[in-house]
Design a protein around this nucleic acid. Structure first.
Lengths: 335, 335
DNA sequence: AAGGGTTGTCGAAGCGCTTCGACGCTGTTT
DNA sequence: AAACAGCGTCGAAGCGCTTCGACAACCCTT
């Protein structure tokens, strides 16, 4: 069963090859009747254009690259959500997605760009001093970053508005009457690495606390149960008036509840808890946690939308921030 | 800056286009001196073959498809590990990876196959009655499945040896002298869905228990803290002699430890616990859990190895089972 | 009735690569 | 000395598609 080519379709429909091409691309006006005859032949023969030939002739591959971060051991479940939403959205624009890891280094990006495999790039989980960024600049390939590097000028970046995520948590707790609130963040190493989002959450949290006249503290938090226990009890000892707790650490959130249980603090009667985490984690906890969601799907979809706009030659904003959403559950209560 | 073509390289090196091609592919003998001159030109000009043209002429795209399951809400962190190991291994064979979700349905697979975008397929997380399998059969595209469908004949499948994972846990506990052991598995819905691996773990666990004269029970286990608590306490009530517990549920593993703490059972003095989960989850728990690892990297890599062998026309085994590995930590002790 | 737009279709020229057959060498065999 | 076999290289023919210019055929204007 030989593969069906555009010539087969043309012959079957009794038209020229170019006519078939124009019917399919819509780049020239074709009469209703011809167009329909061609489409019938396309379906009858089960024709699918050869991607290589198309790319060669049109200089467009209809493929975008999705570049994962180099950092190993990053198995954030959200990454998978990003990825699937990127794929789904790209398909909506009739594009496919080439998956790359950054551990090929600059050469990898150079390779896919130079070989015309892809029309553009989406880089996930960009860090403040991301080595991929300078490369990207002189590659001149259309691209969108998820995350913000230190110098974002001339680039197109999308991200969750992390500062607002921190702020929303503080405001929710302050609104319930809590006057001393605390944030438990990522492990120390994350701040050291310069992962922007972690710091932004803290800043937003602290700023919003000040605005609402609530006392704030923000501590990093390791991820083993024992360390979480120690951190929580030290925190409550140092700041005994703390009645609101924000946890921005997906791995630790379960442990925090365990620690409070061990320390004899009831949630939400003694301490209200807000988590910044996926909904399923929040719902599995006991009590179910009031939480701020990271809208991974939206971020991925928006990144692709922007990239497609760039491919069409439209100009797009340099920065796009997506707003987080707070869901109230059973772990927060008025003081 | 026009893109560099093979003709540019040929001119620069003073040879014919075909000679450059043969140097690069190694498909005909080329003298050492010519070969070196060509390679120098390739580097000097920064030449990268145009992927589309190459695919068109050679009928090989050097791209494989990685197909994710349709099932949404599948947030197994291991999936990302699979994916990255597939990409890394594919690159080792000079192939790239096209990421697809199965929610395009059969047409999606048909499309990439018919358009010659990919040379072969890797399907992740295949279920017992996976709708993608019959399609795959008549597509006739080289493929490898991760997971086992009910009828695997004529296919190539790779997976973790889940039965052995269950067995290893039972043997470890029996070896420590535990005579009544229990398995807490996935939520009920998973067994209903016919996800093979969950059942296999149970079977392996039960069989090994029998072999070692230990009493076994296996219960499904939901994932919220409250339900885990209820399940664990019901289990211990119904089988008071239980001194060994295997948890095959990544989301619940933390809650199980919390539940035991609440119920006043010490780990490992009163109950030994083994988890089937990634190492980082096991290490974060308190006490650190003896665990059986799902070697996601190996599975992905092996899948690609097999696919590449098939693309070379070699014949490969229909079934490949990878062995799990038990790591002893602080949560298991002799009875 | 002649000119001038539109509209719909066609033919052919590539796009950059691989691969096949051809051919001039040099070296070996008769 | 003729015949032959490799070896190393070249030229040219595609691969299946897009796109450009050409050109009938038609409908309006003058």
């Amino acid at each position: 069963m030989r593969t069906v080519t555009i010539a087969d379709v043309a012959r079957h429909a009794g038209v020229a090859v170019s006519t078939v091409s124009y019917v399919l691309s819509g780049k020239r006006a074709i009469s209703e009747s011809t167009s329909e005859r061609v489409m019938r032949s396309v379906r009858a023969l089960g024709y699918h254009p050869n991607a290589g030939a198309r790319a060669l002739a049109s200089k467009r591959s209809n493929v975008i690259a999705l570049v994962l971060p180099l950092r190993a051991g990053m198995h954030l479940p959200v990454l998978m959500q990003f990825a699937t939403s990127v794929v789904t959205t790209a398909r909506r624009f009739d594009h496919d997605v080439l998956l790359m890891t950054a551990d090929e280094g600059p050469d990898g990006l150079r390779r896919v760009a130079a070989s015309a495999m892809v029309d553009g790039l989406v880089l996930m989980d960009v860090e403040i001093h991301d080595p991929r960024v300078p490369l990207l600049r002189d590659l001149g390939e259309p691209s969108v970053l998820i995350g913000f590097p230190a110098d974002a000028s001339g680039l197109t970046c999308v991200d969750l508005n992390f500062a607002q995520a921190g702020a929303i948590c503080a405001e929710h707790l302050a609104g319930l009457g809590h006057r001393e609130i605390a944030l438990l963040g990522a492990p120390n190493v994350v701040y050291k690495r310069g992962t922007a989002f972690a710091e932004r959450v803290m800043e937003g949290f602290v700023a919003a606390g000040h605005r609402h006249a609530a006392g704030t503290v923000a501590w990093p938090c390791e991820e083993t149960f024992d360390e979480v226990c120690a951190t929580v009890s030290a925190l409550l000892e140092r700041h005994p008036g703390t009645s609101g707790l924000v946890v921005h650490n997906e791995a630790a959130v379960g442990h925090v509840l365990g620690a409070l249980r061990v320390l004899g603090r009831r949630v939400p009667q003694d301490v209200s808890v807000v988590a910044i985490c996926p909904d399923d984690v929040a719902e599995r906890a006991s009590p179910a946690l009031t939480s701020v969601l990271i809208p991974a799907e939206d971020v991925g979809a928006q990144a692709v939308n922007l990239l497609m706009a760039k491919l069409e030659g439209e100009s797009v904003p340099e920065a796009t921030l997506l707003n987080p959403r707070l869901t109230v559950r059973r772990s927060t209560a008025a003081r």
